[in-house]
């Protein structure tokens, strides 16, 4: 509320201010600028919306490219490393590349031994 009042201090509404009155004659409608914003530094914080785990198969953070993709420096059409994360129904997450190699042999989560089924994929 105070700020509102401060903003409201314009020549038109406070005719008691001496130079306010003067200017009112020159620029009849335009309110006087109390201050100008010259520089503004915006700071943003972010974090992953999931727990940022290490892939238990290749031991690299799931949000980074897996060890295999790093070694092969695989990149997609846009030049980004295309190594996504996969979450199982058991809520364990791995690199998709790592997990797809493992399920070929044994369709179980290597951490909890539950039958592996994909809950979601992505980053």
């Amino acid at each position: 509320m105070r700020i509102e009042e401060g903003k409201a201090v314009s020549p038109s509404k406070s005719p008691t201010m001496a130079d306010g009155v003067e200017r009112m004659d020159n620029e009849s409608i335009k309110p006087e600028k109390m201050f100008t914003l010259k520089k503004w530094n915006a700071v943003a914080m972010w974090s992953w919306d999931v727990e940022c785990d290490t892939c238990a198969i290749c031991r690299v953070q799931v949000m980074d490219a897996c060890l295999r993709c790093q070694a092969e420096s695989k990149r997609d059409f846009y030049g980004k490393q295309d190594c996504v994360v996969v979450w199982g129904e058991c809520n364990h997450s791995f690199h998709y590349c790592c997990m797809s190699l493992w399920v070929k042999q044994n369709n179980r989560c290597p951490l909890c031994q539950q039958e592996w089924s994909i809950q979601r994929m992505g980053k």
Binding site: A56, I57, Q105, R108, P110, Q113
Partner: peptide, 13 residues
């Protein structure tokens, strides 16, 4: 053991 149905065999972890 490479192939095992119980949870005791090899796992990449």
């Amino acid at each position: 053991r490479q192939h095992s149905v119980d949870g005791l065999g090899w796992s990449p972890t």
